[in-house]
Design a protein around this nucleic acid. Structure first.
Lengths: 353, 353
DNA sequence: CATCCGGCCGTAAACGTTTACAGAGCGCTG
DNA sequence: CAGCGCTCTGTAAACGTTTACGGCCGGATG
């Protein structure tokens, strides 16, 4: 297997030094004649620069990584779809780390930044940003964007931007809507409480009930995982315990899918008997029957914002950390209102700008 | 921004040469005392090896790329889900290229192999493997696995393995099934004919009809894109032209979603009035209502096979090109048979082993 | 005691670039 | 004609590793 041509090969063939070759290839001012000779030689040899050598010298890899819990979750796919074109546009390649929610893996990715195989990282930590995460970020000395909650007291040296949403308001929007359509016994199917979204949504559910003057009833709450079959299990348990429940708030769309499965299986009408609301407003929400009312947490927008913040830091150098907050909205579909009688979809939050 | 420690820093602190440092860090036999001193210094300095420098020297990047048409398509997500863990296990990082079906982009990825930023590539070319693709693969001199059809006459030097499925048999399975349940006017909603799957499925539809002794009727065929809204348009057009159609064969699940939308909108019962079959058997198929009977082309299996072939080549060196063919199967769900009366799902192809 | 051998270690080269620096050549000016 | 300054080019160092090679030192052997 013959090795490919290098600038040295070109230099020999063109009868110039490697410095001249490099200058020509990088478009630095050079005598017309030299340019032609080098170009000719490069063409004939089919030269392609070695990106690793270039990276070593330039101290940049033109690569960016995106680390998330599970590429099988449409939320993250939606983010990738926004991130990828922005990075490509800016000349960066994209690496994907799907950590399966494994905290060790997540830390591994952050610590790996010190190997300098990427110029920056977008990470969405499922279990929250711990002391160890922060240490790793500071030690990395490469820009990081965290999608999700970030502690208040980040140390000075941390090159970290933050994109978050307000799931509190999101849950609030959903429960307000359910209240408006007359539901009073609103069950809640949550994910694990030791995840950031799980904990936040649990608190938000309680608060929203209180704001509506509804009592908090432990029997109306089920905790499982963020998957469809877990959602089905939870729905089954809750329906058995409280047959009179008239709405199910689900902590993500996958859980809602499971709930819909069970409701159909039990012959309960949706939304007649039980209204269902999902969360994340993924592509799946428009596929189910009835279609799924869902709280949009702006996945696409969060992806775009994260990529934008990272590129900005890479291109314009150090600056103060920034936080972008994406406002949730409620997309109303068939699982809470009969088609025809429904208000328009895509309601915005009612709060102040 | 202070630069991180290198083996030179360690060597100074430990009072040894950089060669010894390297040997210790790589576990080569070294005197006990030296090992301790180096390890100590490395720990104190928080040393992490620079992966770029290592790559330059070792001529390997420990990175593999996967190029596909659209990361938004669940088929490719299914593949990524299988590929990623296998690569991680073997110590490789994964790069993602979503080319949007742009032929130029695709070629760009292949040509980019010569920059040596990855050790291998898995690619699923939407528009087929052209002369230019082959040139690029030969020039790459890095192993490539193509998911999809490959020309018969690949040149000698091409380091290329191939994973394919047999969509001909897949379509055949679906049409046999529709025939068995009594359908005779079977429409076909296809994707673009200038894509590999589009062309293959068009031919397969014709052949399968013939095998069943059904006439081929141009009016029963619509050509659009592989997306949901395009599927809806096609279904609308076909239903208007041939109101008596009693089944719709769809060239992928997204098209089938669009068809289901239209059928529901027009109040036609599925499968009573019109049976629907999708293709790819993505996660979506179990989400719709009725759930979607779909031809499984073994996306997960194809992903696994591709990763396996590539890793084998990387680990065990050159060998003859291999081809893996994944057999399609039919997953029967509610869009062709009423629940309760349905045979078990997951039928295998009837052909010879 | 001279010789040899084996185990460790340090020097230096190599991977393929980019770039600081200085020298060569040349035209212009005083 | 000396001197200056400009443009272009080549030499060499640097990025951070791995590794071939040879030297040194100790102990074992004749």
């Amino acid at each position: 297997m013959t090795e490919g041509p290098t600038i040295t090969t070109i230099a020999q063939r063109a009868g110039v030094s490697i410095a001249s070759v490099s200058r020509v290839l990088n478009g630095l001012p050079t005598r017309e004649d030299t340019v032609r000779r080098v170009m000719r030689a490069a063409d004939e040899l089919g030269y392609v620069p070695n990106s690793v050598a270039r990276s070593l010298r330039n101290r940049r890899t033109d690569q960016i990584a995106f680390a998330m819990a599970d590429i099988g979750n449409p939320v993250y796919v939606a983010m990738v779809r926004e991130i990828q074109p922005l990075l490509k546009e800016a000349g960066y390649r994209l690496l994907i780390h799907s950590t399966d929610g494994d905290a060790e893996d997540e830390l591994g990715v952050l610590r790996g930044l010190r190997e300098r195989y990427v110029d920056g990282l977008i990470i969405s930590p499922l279990r929250g940003v711990t002391e160890e995460h922060i240490e790793a970020i500071v030690a990395a000395r490469a820009p990081v964007v965290v999608i999700g909650a970030l502690p208040e007291d980040m140390p000075e040296g941390a090159l970290v931007d933050n994109v978050r949403t307000d799931s509190r308001t999101g849950v609030r929007l959903a429960l307000d809507h359910l209240h408006v359509i007359g539901r009073r016994r609103i069950g809640f199917l949550n994910g694990p409480l030791d995840t950031v979204p799980g904990a936040a949504r649990a608190a938000a559910y309680r608060e929203a009930l209180e704001a509506l003057g509804l009592p908090y009833d432990e029997d109306l709450v089920e905790v499982g995982d963020f998957y469809r079959d877990s959602g089905a299990r939870a729905a089954r348990a809750l329906l058995a315990r409280v047959p009179g429940v008239d709405a199910l708030m689900c902590a993500n769309d996958l859980i809602a899918l499971g709930a819909l499965d069970v409701l159909r299986e039990q012959g309960r009408d949706v939304p007649g008997d039980v209204a269902v609301v999902g969360m994340d407003d993924t592509d799946l929400a428009s596929v189910t029957w009835p279609t799924l009312t869902s709280v949009s947490l702006g996945s696409a927008e969060r992806g775009r914002a994260a990529a934008g913040l990272l590129l900005d830091r890479l291109q314009n150098g150090p600056r103060e950390p920034r936080v972008v907050v994406v406002r949730p909205s409620l997309t109303i579909r068939g699982s809470t209102t009969r088609p025809g009688t429904s208000p328009r979809a895509g309601t915005s939050p009612g709060g102040a700008r």
